[in-house]
Design a protein around this nucleic acid. Structure first.
Length: 463
RNA sequence: GGCUCGGUGGCAGAGUGGUUAUGUAGGGGCCUGCAAAGCCUUGCACAGCGGUUCGAUUCCGCUCCGAGCCUCCA
Protein backbone atom coordinates (compact mmCIF):
# COMPACT_ATOMS: atom_id res chain seq x y z
CA UNK A 1 0.00 0.00 0.00
CA UNK A 2 1.53 3.23 -1.14
CA UNK A 3 1.65 6.26 1.08
CA UNK A 4 2.07 9.86 0.09
CA UNK A 5 5.57 11.20 0.38
CA UNK A 6 6.47 14.84 -0.04
CA UNK A 7 9.72 16.72 -0.02
CA UNK A 8 9.91 18.65 3.22
CA UNK A 9 12.18 21.68 2.98
CA UNK A 10 12.45 21.73 6.76
CA UNK A 11 14.12 18.32 6.81
CA UNK A 12 15.57 18.65 3.33
CA UNK A 13 14.31 15.16 2.57
CA UNK A 14 11.34 13.29 1.19
CA UNK A 15 9.07 12.25 4.02
CA UNK A 16 5.92 10.25 4.44
CA UNK A 17 3.03 12.63 4.96
CA UNK A 18 1.42 12.00 8.35
CA UNK A 19 -1.13 14.67 9.19
CA UNK A 20 -1.31 16.40 12.54
CA UNK A 21 -5.02 15.66 12.55
CA UNK A 22 -6.17 13.13 9.92
CA UNK A 23 -9.77 14.29 10.28
CA UNK A 24 -8.78 17.74 9.02
CA UNK A 25 -5.64 18.23 6.97
CA UNK A 26 -4.65 21.88 6.97
CA UNK A 27 -2.53 23.64 4.39
CA UNK A 28 -1.49 27.26 3.94
CA UNK A 29 -0.02 28.59 0.71
CA UNK A 30 1.55 32.03 0.47
CA UNK A 31 -0.59 33.76 -2.11
CA UNK A 32 -0.13 36.67 -4.47
CA UNK A 33 0.58 40.33 -3.84
CA UNK A 34 -2.23 41.85 -5.85
CA UNK A 35 -0.79 44.89 -7.59
CA UNK A 36 -0.55 43.53 -11.13
CA UNK A 37 -1.65 40.65 -13.34
CA UNK A 38 -0.51 37.18 -12.27
CA UNK A 39 2.29 35.66 -14.32
CA UNK A 40 2.94 32.06 -15.18
CA UNK A 41 5.19 31.68 -12.13
CA UNK A 42 2.35 32.70 -9.82
CA UNK A 43 0.22 30.23 -11.72
CA UNK A 44 2.65 27.40 -11.16
CA UNK A 45 2.39 27.87 -7.42
CA UNK A 46 -1.40 27.98 -7.62
CA UNK A 47 -1.65 24.91 -9.87
CA UNK A 48 0.83 22.84 -7.88
CA UNK A 49 -0.92 23.58 -4.61
CA UNK A 50 -4.27 22.93 -6.22
CA UNK A 51 -2.96 19.52 -7.30
CA UNK A 52 -1.63 18.81 -3.82
CA UNK A 53 -5.00 19.69 -2.30
CA UNK A 54 -6.89 17.57 -4.83
CA UNK A 55 -4.63 14.63 -4.04
CA UNK A 56 -4.99 15.11 -0.30
CA UNK A 57 -8.76 15.16 -0.71
CA UNK A 58 -8.60 11.67 -2.19
CA UNK A 59 -6.76 10.50 0.92
CA UNK A 60 -8.39 12.35 3.80
CA UNK A 61 -12.01 13.14 4.60
CA UNK A 62 -11.43 16.84 5.10
CA UNK A 63 -8.79 19.23 3.84
CA UNK A 64 -8.77 22.92 4.68
CA UNK A 65 -6.83 24.96 2.16
CA UNK A 66 -5.96 28.55 2.94
CA UNK A 67 -4.15 30.87 0.57
CA UNK A 68 -3.86 34.53 1.39
CA UNK A 69 -4.12 37.74 -0.57
CA UNK A 70 -1.40 40.26 0.22
CA UNK A 71 -3.20 43.55 -0.21
CA UNK A 72 -0.90 45.95 1.62
CA UNK A 73 2.71 46.26 0.60
CA UNK A 74 5.16 48.84 -0.73
CA UNK A 75 4.75 47.70 -4.31
CA UNK A 76 0.99 48.07 -3.98
CA UNK A 77 1.34 51.57 -2.57
CA UNK A 78 3.66 52.50 -5.40
CA UNK A 79 1.35 51.10 -8.07
CA UNK A 80 -1.67 52.82 -6.54
CA UNK A 81 0.17 56.14 -6.46
CA UNK A 82 1.16 55.72 -10.09
CA UNK A 83 -2.42 54.97 -11.05
CA UNK A 84 -3.62 57.74 -8.72
CA UNK A 85 -6.28 55.56 -7.10
CA UNK A 86 -6.85 54.35 -3.53
CA UNK A 87 -4.80 51.24 -2.92
CA UNK A 88 -7.92 49.22 -2.08
CA UNK A 89 -9.30 49.91 -5.53
CA UNK A 90 -6.15 48.49 -7.04
CA UNK A 91 -5.99 45.42 -4.82
CA UNK A 92 -9.67 44.51 -5.18
CA UNK A 93 -9.34 44.75 -8.94
CA UNK A 94 -6.29 42.52 -9.17
CA UNK A 95 -7.59 40.09 -6.57
CA UNK A 96 -10.65 39.50 -8.77
CA UNK A 97 -8.51 39.16 -11.88
CA UNK A 98 -6.21 36.74 -10.09
CA UNK A 99 -9.10 34.50 -9.14
CA UNK A 100 -10.54 34.61 -12.65
CA UNK A 101 -7.20 33.80 -14.24
CA UNK A 102 -6.54 30.91 -11.87
CA UNK A 103 -10.04 29.58 -12.46
CA UNK A 104 -9.21 29.51 -16.17
CA UNK A 105 -6.37 27.17 -15.27
CA UNK A 106 -8.74 24.88 -13.40
CA UNK A 107 -7.55 26.04 -9.99
CA UNK A 108 -10.23 25.67 -7.32
CA UNK A 109 -10.70 28.59 -4.98
CA UNK A 110 -9.01 28.01 -1.62
CA UNK A 111 -11.42 27.30 1.22
CA UNK A 112 -10.28 30.50 2.86
CA UNK A 113 -8.61 33.42 1.13
CA UNK A 114 -7.79 35.88 3.89
CA UNK A 115 -6.70 39.44 3.14
CA UNK A 116 -3.85 41.01 5.04
CA UNK A 117 -5.78 44.23 5.62
CA UNK A 118 -8.54 42.28 7.37
CA UNK A 119 -6.01 41.04 9.92
CA UNK A 120 -4.26 44.19 11.08
CA UNK A 121 -5.50 43.67 14.64
CA UNK A 122 -4.05 40.16 14.74
CA UNK A 123 -0.75 41.42 13.40
CA UNK A 124 -0.57 44.18 15.99
CA UNK A 125 -1.36 41.66 18.73
CA UNK A 126 1.36 39.34 17.49
CA UNK A 127 3.86 42.18 17.37
CA UNK A 128 2.94 43.22 20.93
CA UNK A 129 3.53 39.68 22.10
CA UNK A 130 6.91 39.54 20.42
CA UNK A 131 7.94 42.84 21.99
CA UNK A 132 6.73 41.69 25.38
CA UNK A 133 8.68 38.45 25.13
CA UNK A 134 11.85 40.28 24.16
CA UNK A 135 11.98 39.02 20.58
CA UNK A 136 11.24 42.42 19.08
CA UNK A 137 12.10 46.03 19.78
CA UNK A 138 10.82 49.44 18.79
CA UNK A 139 13.08 52.04 17.29
CA UNK A 140 12.13 55.25 15.48
CA UNK A 141 8.56 54.12 14.96
CA UNK A 142 9.71 50.77 13.56
CA UNK A 143 9.28 47.47 15.30
CA UNK A 144 11.92 44.93 14.40
CA UNK A 145 12.22 41.26 15.08
CA UNK A 146 15.56 40.57 16.73
CA UNK A 147 16.89 37.55 14.87
CA UNK A 148 19.57 36.48 17.41
CA UNK A 149 16.71 35.94 19.89
CA UNK A 150 15.55 32.97 17.84
CA UNK A 151 18.24 30.35 17.92
CA UNK A 152 16.73 28.13 15.27
CA UNK A 153 16.88 30.92 12.71
CA UNK A 154 18.09 29.37 9.47
CA UNK A 155 16.68 25.92 10.16
CA UNK A 156 14.41 25.98 7.12
CA UNK A 157 16.84 27.24 4.52
CA UNK A 158 19.82 25.40 5.97
CA UNK A 159 21.74 28.60 6.44
CA UNK A 160 24.35 29.34 9.02
CA UNK A 161 24.13 33.04 9.81
CA UNK A 162 27.88 33.40 10.31
CA UNK A 163 28.59 32.20 6.80
CA UNK A 164 26.18 34.44 4.97
CA UNK A 165 27.36 37.65 3.44
CA UNK A 166 25.18 40.09 5.26
CA UNK A 167 23.49 42.65 3.10
CA UNK A 168 24.99 41.11 -0.01
CA UNK A 169 22.14 42.42 -2.06
CA UNK A 170 20.32 44.96 0.05
CA UNK A 171 21.62 47.78 2.15
CA UNK A 172 21.26 47.25 5.87
CA UNK A 173 19.14 49.87 7.63
CA UNK A 174 21.37 51.73 10.09
CA UNK A 175 19.05 51.41 13.10
CA UNK A 176 19.02 47.61 13.20
CA UNK A 177 20.56 46.02 16.28
CA UNK A 178 21.53 43.08 14.12
CA UNK A 179 21.82 43.25 10.35
CA UNK A 180 19.47 40.28 10.02
CA UNK A 181 16.66 41.90 12.03
CA UNK A 182 13.53 42.35 9.98
CA UNK A 183 10.55 44.67 10.06
CA UNK A 184 7.34 43.75 11.86
CA UNK A 185 5.80 47.20 11.77
CA UNK A 186 6.86 50.41 10.10
CA UNK A 187 5.62 53.98 10.13
CA UNK A 188 3.42 55.34 7.36
CA UNK A 189 4.09 59.06 6.83
CA UNK A 190 1.01 61.09 6.08
CA UNK A 191 -0.21 60.29 2.58
CA UNK A 192 0.60 56.59 2.87
CA UNK A 193 -2.01 54.07 3.99
CA UNK A 194 -1.76 52.81 7.55
CA UNK A 195 -3.42 51.95 10.81
CA UNK A 196 -3.15 53.20 14.35
CA UNK A 197 -0.92 51.08 16.54
CA UNK A 198 0.90 51.30 19.87
CA UNK A 199 3.91 52.47 17.81
CA UNK A 200 2.06 55.15 15.92
CA UNK A 201 0.35 55.25 12.56
CA UNK A 202 1.92 52.61 10.38
CA UNK A 203 1.66 49.39 8.43
CA UNK A 204 2.84 45.81 8.81
CA UNK A 205 5.96 44.25 7.38
CA UNK A 206 5.41 41.52 4.83
CA UNK A 207 6.27 38.44 6.86
CA UNK A 208 3.90 39.26 9.66
CA UNK A 209 0.65 38.70 7.79
CA UNK A 210 1.27 35.03 7.05
CA UNK A 211 2.10 34.26 10.66
CA UNK A 212 -1.06 36.04 11.81
CA UNK A 213 -3.43 34.68 9.17
CA UNK A 214 -2.26 31.08 9.14
CA UNK A 215 -2.66 30.83 12.89
CA UNK A 216 -6.06 32.53 12.79
CA UNK A 217 -7.47 30.41 9.98
CA UNK A 218 -5.88 27.03 10.65
CA UNK A 219 -4.68 26.93 14.25
CA UNK A 220 -1.27 25.66 15.31
CA UNK A 221 0.45 23.54 14.38
CA UNK A 222 -0.89 22.86 10.90
CA UNK A 223 0.30 20.40 8.28
CA UNK A 224 1.73 22.04 5.20
CA UNK A 225 3.02 25.53 4.52
CA UNK A 226 3.84 26.13 0.91
CA UNK A 227 4.95 28.71 -1.60
CA UNK A 228 7.49 29.44 -4.28
CA UNK A 229 11.04 28.32 -3.69
CA UNK A 230 12.29 31.88 -3.28
CA UNK A 231 10.10 32.33 -0.23
CA UNK A 232 12.14 29.77 1.72
CA UNK A 233 14.47 32.55 2.68
CA UNK A 234 13.80 34.96 4.14
CA UNK A 235 10.00 34.99 4.11
CA UNK A 236 9.28 31.56 5.52
CA UNK A 237 12.28 31.62 7.79
CA UNK A 238 10.95 34.84 9.29
CA UNK A 239 7.46 33.43 9.66
CA UNK A 240 8.85 30.54 11.67
CA UNK A 241 10.81 32.95 13.85
CA UNK A 242 7.72 35.08 14.50
CA UNK A 243 5.21 32.35 15.18
CA UNK A 244 7.41 30.04 17.20
CA UNK A 245 8.82 32.90 19.27
CA UNK A 246 5.36 34.26 20.02
CA UNK A 247 4.34 30.85 21.33
CA UNK A 248 7.55 30.29 23.27
CA UNK A 249 8.47 27.35 21.05
CA UNK A 250 11.90 28.61 20.16
CA UNK A 251 13.33 25.13 19.85
CA UNK A 252 10.47 23.61 17.90
CA UNK A 253 10.02 25.02 14.41
CA UNK A 254 7.45 22.32 13.70
CA UNK A 255 5.12 23.95 16.19
CA UNK A 256 4.21 26.21 13.28
CA UNK A 257 3.94 23.85 10.30
CA UNK A 258 5.07 20.26 9.97
CA UNK A 259 5.89 20.17 6.26
CA UNK A 260 7.26 22.96 4.08
CA UNK A 261 6.44 22.51 0.43
CA UNK A 262 8.17 24.65 -2.21
CA UNK A 263 7.73 24.72 -5.95
CA UNK A 264 10.41 25.60 -8.48
CA UNK A 265 10.59 28.56 -10.80
CA UNK A 266 9.44 29.16 -14.33
CA UNK A 267 11.99 30.47 -16.80
CA UNK A 268 11.02 31.94 -20.13
CA UNK A 269 12.88 30.85 -23.25
CA UNK A 270 15.85 29.90 -21.08
CA UNK A 271 16.02 33.16 -19.18
CA UNK A 272 14.86 34.19 -15.77
CA UNK A 273 11.49 35.86 -15.99
CA UNK A 274 11.89 39.46 -14.92
CA UNK A 275 10.49 42.86 -15.59
CA UNK A 276 13.84 44.24 -16.63
CA UNK A 277 14.23 41.63 -19.36
CA UNK A 278 10.62 42.26 -20.28
CA UNK A 279 9.76 38.59 -20.63
CA UNK A 280 6.98 38.28 -18.07
CA UNK A 281 4.30 35.88 -19.25
CA UNK A 282 0.94 36.94 -17.90
CA UNK A 283 -1.78 34.35 -17.48
CA UNK A 284 -4.34 36.98 -18.42
CA UNK A 285 -2.73 37.31 -21.85
CA UNK A 286 -1.90 33.67 -22.45
CA UNK A 287 -5.44 32.42 -21.86
CA UNK A 288 -6.47 34.49 -24.87
CA UNK A 289 -4.14 32.42 -27.02
CA UNK A 290 -4.25 28.99 -25.38
CA UNK A 291 -6.84 26.92 -23.57
CA UNK A 292 -6.36 27.14 -19.82
CA UNK A 293 -6.14 23.38 -19.63
CA UNK A 294 -3.22 23.37 -22.07
CA UNK A 295 -1.38 25.83 -19.83
CA UNK A 296 -2.18 23.71 -16.79
CA UNK A 297 -0.94 20.57 -18.53
CA UNK A 298 2.25 22.38 -19.48
CA UNK A 299 2.79 23.46 -15.88
CA UNK A 300 2.34 19.86 -14.78
CA UNK A 301 4.59 18.43 -17.49
CA UNK A 302 7.69 18.86 -15.33
CA UNK A 303 8.08 17.83 -11.72
CA UNK A 304 6.97 20.68 -9.48
CA UNK A 305 10.40 21.17 -7.90
CA UNK A 306 12.28 21.25 -11.19
CA UNK A 307 12.78 24.50 -13.03
CA UNK A 308 10.33 24.78 -15.89
CA UNK A 309 11.47 26.42 -19.09
CA UNK A 310 8.41 28.05 -20.59
CA UNK A 311 8.57 28.03 -24.39
CA UNK A 312 6.13 27.94 -27.27
CA UNK A 313 7.49 24.50 -28.06
CA UNK A 314 6.49 22.87 -24.79
CA UNK A 315 3.05 24.48 -24.88
CA UNK A 316 2.54 23.00 -28.34
CA UNK A 317 3.83 19.64 -27.20
CA UNK A 318 1.46 19.53 -24.26
CA UNK A 319 -1.41 20.71 -26.39
CA UNK A 320 -0.76 17.81 -28.76
CA UNK A 321 -0.58 15.40 -25.84
CA UNK A 322 -3.88 16.61 -24.42
CA UNK A 323 -5.52 16.31 -27.84
CA UNK A 324 -4.34 12.75 -28.03
CA UNK A 325 -5.78 11.91 -24.61
CA UNK A 326 -9.07 13.58 -25.48
CA UNK A 327 -9.15 11.68 -28.77
CA UNK A 328 -8.83 8.46 -26.85
CA UNK A 329 -11.75 9.55 -24.68
CA UNK A 330 -13.72 10.37 -27.81
CA UNK A 331 -12.98 6.92 -29.19
CA UNK A 332 -14.35 5.55 -25.92
CA UNK A 333 -17.43 7.77 -25.86
CA UNK A 334 -19.83 4.86 -26.28
CA UNK A 335 -18.16 2.88 -23.54
CA UNK A 336 -19.28 3.40 -19.96
CA UNK A 337 -16.49 4.14 -17.57
CA UNK A 338 -15.85 1.29 -15.19
CA UNK A 339 -17.63 1.83 -11.92
CA UNK A 340 -16.93 -1.23 -9.80
CA UNK A 341 -13.32 -0.49 -9.13
CA UNK A 342 -12.43 2.65 -7.31
CA UNK A 343 -8.67 2.19 -7.02
CA UNK A 344 -6.45 3.64 -9.70
CA UNK A 345 -3.66 1.46 -11.09
CA UNK A 346 -0.65 1.12 -8.85
CA UNK A 347 1.67 2.86 -11.32
CA UNK A 348 -0.45 5.98 -11.33
CA UNK A 349 -0.86 6.05 -7.57
CA UNK A 350 2.86 5.51 -7.11
CA UNK A 351 3.50 8.50 -9.34
CA UNK A 352 1.19 10.75 -7.36
CA UNK A 353 2.38 9.47 -4.00
CA UNK A 354 6.04 9.86 -4.88
CA UNK A 355 6.17 13.58 -4.22
CA UNK A 356 3.63 14.42 -6.92
CA UNK A 357 5.53 12.96 -9.84
CA UNK A 358 3.21 14.32 -12.50
CA UNK A 359 5.44 13.48 -15.51
CA UNK A 360 5.33 9.85 -14.39
CA UNK A 361 1.54 9.97 -14.00
CA UNK A 362 1.12 11.56 -17.41
CA UNK A 363 3.38 8.89 -18.93
CA UNK A 364 1.14 6.23 -17.40
CA UNK A 365 -1.88 7.88 -19.01
CA UNK A 366 -0.11 7.68 -22.37
CA UNK A 367 0.64 4.01 -21.80
CA UNK A 368 -3.03 3.42 -21.06
CA UNK A 369 -4.14 5.12 -24.26
CA UNK A 370 -1.67 2.98 -26.20
CA UNK A 371 -3.49 -0.10 -24.95
CA UNK A 372 -6.89 0.95 -26.26
CA UNK A 373 -6.49 -0.45 -29.76
CA UNK A 374 -5.93 -3.96 -28.41
CA UNK A 375 -8.30 -3.76 -25.46
CA UNK A 376 -11.59 -5.60 -25.08
CA UNK A 377 -14.74 -3.86 -23.88
CA UNK A 378 -14.04 -4.33 -20.21
CA UNK A 379 -10.47 -3.12 -20.52
CA UNK A 380 -11.65 -0.10 -22.46
CA UNK A 381 -14.12 0.65 -19.73
CA UNK A 382 -11.34 0.50 -17.17
CA UNK A 383 -9.04 2.68 -19.26
CA UNK A 384 -11.75 5.30 -19.59
CA UNK A 385 -12.29 5.21 -15.85
CA UNK A 386 -8.55 5.65 -15.20
CA UNK A 387 -8.22 8.55 -17.62
CA UNK A 388 -11.15 10.40 -16.11
CA UNK A 389 -10.30 9.70 -12.49
CA UNK A 390 -6.62 10.54 -12.90
CA UNK A 391 -7.66 13.60 -14.86
CA UNK A 392 -9.80 14.70 -11.94
CA UNK A 393 -6.77 14.79 -9.67
CA UNK A 394 -4.57 16.48 -12.27
CA UNK A 395 -7.37 18.88 -13.12
CA UNK A 396 -7.55 17.87 -16.79
CA UNK A 397 -9.66 15.73 -19.16
CA UNK A 398 -13.02 16.70 -17.65
CA UNK A 399 -14.39 18.41 -20.75
CA UNK A 400 -16.50 16.83 -23.46
CA UNK A 401 -14.01 15.24 -25.88
CA UNK A 402 -15.92 16.26 -29.01
CA UNK A 403 -16.01 19.86 -27.92
CA UNK A 404 -12.37 19.83 -26.91
CA UNK A 405 -11.40 18.52 -30.34
CA UNK A 406 -13.58 21.10 -32.05
CA UNK A 407 -16.08 18.75 -33.71
CA UNK A 408 -19.02 20.66 -35.07
CA UNK A 409 -17.53 23.99 -34.14
CA UNK A 410 -16.48 26.67 -36.51
CA UNK A 411 -15.14 30.16 -36.03
CA UNK A 412 -15.28 31.40 -39.59
CA UNK A 413 -17.98 29.51 -41.48
CA UNK A 414 -21.54 28.68 -40.52
CA UNK A 415 -22.57 25.05 -40.26
CA UNK A 416 -24.87 25.05 -43.28
CA UNK A 417 -22.09 26.33 -45.52
CA UNK A 418 -19.74 23.67 -44.20
CA UNK A 419 -22.28 20.88 -44.62
CA UNK A 420 -23.05 22.01 -48.17
CA UNK A 421 -19.38 22.13 -49.09
CA UNK A 422 -18.93 18.63 -47.67
CA UNK A 423 -21.90 17.38 -49.68
CA UNK A 424 -20.47 18.99 -52.78
CA UNK A 425 -17.11 17.40 -52.12
CA UNK A 426 -18.58 13.97 -51.56
CA UNK A 427 -20.52 14.34 -54.78
CA UNK A 428 -17.27 15.16 -56.55
CA UNK A 429 -15.61 12.18 -54.94
CA UNK A 430 -18.37 9.91 -56.12
CA UNK A 431 -17.75 11.18 -59.64
CA UNK A 432 -14.02 10.62 -59.11
CA UNK A 433 -13.49 14.32 -59.62
CA UNK A 434 -10.71 14.36 -57.05
CA UNK A 435 -9.34 17.66 -58.19
CA UNK A 436 -12.61 19.32 -57.27
CA UNK A 437 -12.85 17.34 -54.03
CA UNK A 438 -9.37 18.36 -52.95
CA UNK A 439 -9.94 21.99 -53.77
CA UNK A 440 -13.03 22.02 -51.54
CA UNK A 441 -11.10 20.43 -48.74
CA UNK A 442 -8.34 22.97 -49.16
CA UNK A 443 -10.89 25.76 -49.04
CA UNK A 444 -12.32 24.45 -45.79
CA UNK A 445 -8.89 24.03 -44.32
CA UNK A 446 -8.12 27.65 -45.07
CA UNK A 447 -11.18 28.55 -43.01
CA UNK A 448 -9.92 26.45 -40.13
CA UNK A 449 -12.02 23.38 -40.82
CA UNK A 450 -10.41 19.97 -40.91
CA UNK A 451 -12.29 17.14 -42.65
CA UNK A 452 -12.10 13.52 -41.62
CA UNK A 453 -13.49 10.79 -43.87
CA UNK A 454 -14.46 7.87 -41.71
CA UNK A 455 -16.36 4.63 -42.27
CA UNK A 456 -19.41 6.45 -40.92
CA UNK A 457 -19.12 9.34 -43.32
CA UNK A 458 -17.35 12.67 -43.26
CA UNK A 459 -16.94 14.60 -40.04
CA UNK A 460 -15.42 18.01 -39.53
CA UNK A 461 -13.84 19.96 -36.75
CA UNK A 462 -12.29 23.32 -36.22
CA UNK A 463 -8.56 23.18 -36.20
C1' G B 1 32.48 33.03 0.14
C1' G B 2 27.95 30.10 2.19
C1' C B 3 23.41 27.15 1.28
C1' U B 4 20.41 24.33 -2.17
C1' C B 5 19.43 21.96 -6.74
C1' G B 6 20.67 20.28 -11.52
C1' G B 7 23.61 18.30 -16.12
C1' U B 8 19.54 11.86 -19.63
C1' G B 9 18.41 10.65 -26.94
C1' G B 10 16.80 16.64 -32.11
C1' C B 11 13.34 18.67 -28.23
C1' A B 12 10.44 17.96 -23.60
C1' G B 13 10.89 14.80 -19.43
C1' A B 14 10.68 10.42 -15.61
C1' G B 15 13.35 6.51 -13.65
C1' U B 16 16.58 2.52 -12.41
C1' G B 17 22.81 -1.34 -9.54
C1' G B 18 21.96 -5.72 -14.76
C1' U B 19 15.73 -5.83 -18.46
C1' U B 20 11.42 -0.66 -23.67
C1' A B 21 10.24 5.16 -19.48
C1' U B 22 6.69 8.36 -21.82
C1' G B 23 5.49 12.16 -25.33
C1' U B 24 7.02 14.93 -29.49
C1' A B 25 9.98 15.42 -33.79
C1' G B 26 12.63 12.00 -37.61
C1' G B 27 12.88 6.99 -40.71
C1' G B 28 9.99 2.73 -42.70
C1' G B 29 5.17 0.40 -43.26
C1' C B 30 -0.43 -0.39 -42.93
C1' C B 31 -5.06 2.08 -43.81
C1' U B 32 -6.89 6.04 -47.30
C1' G B 33 -8.46 8.25 -54.32
C1' C B 34 -5.65 12.05 -51.48
C1' A B 35 -5.86 14.00 -46.63
C1' A B 36 -6.94 13.90 -41.34
C1' A B 37 -7.07 10.50 -37.41
C1' G B 38 -5.44 5.83 -36.05
C1' C B 39 -2.34 1.45 -36.05
C1' C B 40 2.46 -1.23 -36.63
C1' U B 41 7.70 -0.59 -36.73
C1' U B 42 12.56 1.87 -36.11
C1' G B 43 17.03 5.18 -35.00
C1' C B 44 18.94 8.34 -31.43
C1' A B 45 20.88 8.78 -24.24
C1' C B 46 22.46 8.95 -19.54
C1' A B 47 28.70 15.91 -18.83
C1' G B 48 34.04 14.15 -17.88
C1' C B 49 37.61 11.37 -14.87
C1' G B 50 38.52 7.97 -11.03
C1' G B 51 36.57 4.46 -7.16
C1' U B 52 33.17 0.53 -5.07
C1' U B 53 30.95 -3.79 -7.74
C1' C B 54 30.60 -9.80 -11.32
C1' G B 55 28.20 -5.45 -13.46
C1' A B 56 26.96 1.89 -12.78
C1' U B 57 23.41 6.30 -16.39
C1' U B 58 21.92 4.80 -11.30
C1' C B 59 26.22 4.50 -5.25
C1' C B 60 30.98 7.33 -3.60
C1' G B 61 34.88 11.03 -4.71
C1' C B 62 36.91 14.72 -7.79
C1' U B 63 36.61 17.98 -12.13
C1' C B 64 33.92 20.87 -15.56
C1' C B 65 29.32 23.36 -16.69
C1' G B 66 24.53 25.50 -15.32
C1' A B 67 20.51 27.41 -12.08
C1' G B 68 18.28 29.56 -7.60
C1' C B 69 18.79 31.89 -2.78
C1' C B 70 22.05 34.81 0.80
C1' U B 71 16.57 40.45 3.96
C1' C B 72 10.33 41.96 1.29
C1' C B 73 11.13 38.22 -6.10
C1' A B 74 6.17 32.80 -7.11
Amino acid sequence: MSKLKIQNTLENTKEEFIPVDPSNVRIYACGPTVYDYAHIGNARMAVVNDLLVRLLRTLFPKVTYVSNITDIDDKIIEAAQTADIPFQELTLKFEAIYNEDMAALGVHRPDVQPRATDHIAEMIALTKTLVKLGHAYEIKGHVLFHVPSFEKYGCLSGRNRDEQIVGSRVEVAPFKKDPADFILWKPSPDPLPGWDSPWGFGRPGWHLECSAMSEKTLGLPFDIHSGGMDLTFPHHENEIAQTCSAHKKINNPKYFAKYWFHNGFVNVEGEKMSKSIGNIRLVHEMIKEYKGEVLRMTLLSAHYRQPLNWTKGIIKQNSTMLDRLYRTLKDLEHIDAYTNNHALPQNILEGFYDDLNTPKVIAELNILTNKVSKADEEEKSLIKYCLLETGKILGILQQAPREWLGYGQSKNLDEVTIENLIKERNEARRKKNFEMADSIRKKLKESGIEIEDTSNGTTWRSN
